[in-house]
Design a protein around this nucleic acid. Sequence first.
DNA 1: ATCAATATTATGTTTAGACATAATAAATTG
DNA 2: CAATTTATTATGTCTAAACATAATATTGAT
Lengths: 231, 231
Amino acid sequence: MKPNHSWQSIQAEIIRRISERIWVPGELVPKETDLAKEFAVSRGTINRAMRELANAGLIDRKRKAGTRVALNPVRKATLDIPVIRLDVENRGVSHKHMVLMQKIVPAPALITGKLGLATGTRMLHLRTLHFAGNQPFLYEKRWVNQTAVPDILDVDFSQISANEWLVQNAPLTTGDISFSATNASKDEAETLGAKIGEALFLIDRSTWIGTMAVTNARLAYAPGFQMHTSL
Amino acid sequence: MKPNHSWQSIQAEIIRRISERIWVPGELVPKETDLAKEFAVSRGTINRAMRELANAGLIDRKRKAGTRVALNPVRKATLDIPVIRLDVENRGVSHKHMVLMQKIVPAPALITGKLGLATGTRMLHLRTLHFAGNQPFLYEKRWVNQTAVPDILDVDFSQISANEWLVQNAPLTTGDISFSATNASKDEAETLGAKIGEALFLIDRSTWIGTMAVTNARLAYAPGFQMHTSL
DNA sequence: ATCAATATTATGTTTAGACATAATAAATTG
DNA sequence: CAATTTATTATGTCTAAACATAATATTGAT
């Protein structure tokens, strides 16, 4: 039998029924076998269409209990976290970076705490200023666990930024990110060409390979920066 | 034949091979039929395991050309955008809100511009202060297109916040979000109990149903707010 | 050699059937 | 009646086979 409906068209129809309240939030929707009959497709196709909507939080599915339209659909925004160089270049300007500091010292407790390392662990500390064209774009303070990526000690960071080296050489890390706002310190203001106290967008990211802590980066963006995405 | 490998265990193994560089970025990986043989599963199971990795940007797949490990894996962070009330309650404190202003006036050009409405369009303007426990949490300035959701004019916003009403009554909107940082204005500082100039985390969100603009919300979070997610 | 037509191929989708699993409902027991 | 066991059921996963589709590779014509 040739399919009159692709899983994508069925998914679109399901979304329509939810958005137009033909299927009411909190209520059961027809089961897969019934929908399969209605659309004249196999159950697998219905399952494919619904599975992604469940992942997206639009519907709640439970074995035996059936499928319900979510009461409070949690909207999910996906943020692409590209390499900083590509992030800059995608804005249509050239990227360059400058290493302001590079040393191996015992990391502060704040950092070892976040990464779950012993206090006083000696780590590679880097401060890098990234430029978008001639404008300071991002001030990066990074701590790297030498034990996790020993090769990093041989890297010439004037050639490749630590950010990019790590993405290429320690891919597929797990991690967590937090976004916040902070008033520019004197150091940050001078480095980014901002005024002291000016509001900066801040990303704090810690990454691990398995359970091995790799790096913590504190990214302070120049004033006016916006991170943008669509729903 | 009973499966020795679930699609998830296969996916984990693929991830391992990529992260441990057994499969090198840029290089072709074995084709589905070969992997199916190796893991003694059907091709469908391999496809299921790989498809999600392709969506996640970890691998690039092309018909006939095969599958390659992505050169610059773009990490994707997914942010849950829940109803503000649930966001607060998930932090373990009670939520309440207070409507500070409610009026129907011609919207400023900044707003109509973002939403693609005619300049001077009369819109419902709301200013709402959300509390986490007794602490101001979020100052919301919202513009609503009455034409898109006429029922909103009858809503008692002391009972339900505009945010929650819209999530429930105008679900499945598309939209875009931008995140930034701003220095607290006098109004914002007084409302949120912050100091003038203090750095505030800002979310600006515009939503549409199809091509019909629904609302623009400017959410200024109290100092210290962090938005958190994992990779 | 260059360009267009054709064949090949890896992934994409779908089906019908089967069994697994989790959650509920029903039946049974104390 | 409450607590436990058993049956039921909707979703979750998997298979083997088939056809569709988009790229690439090859062939053939100019």
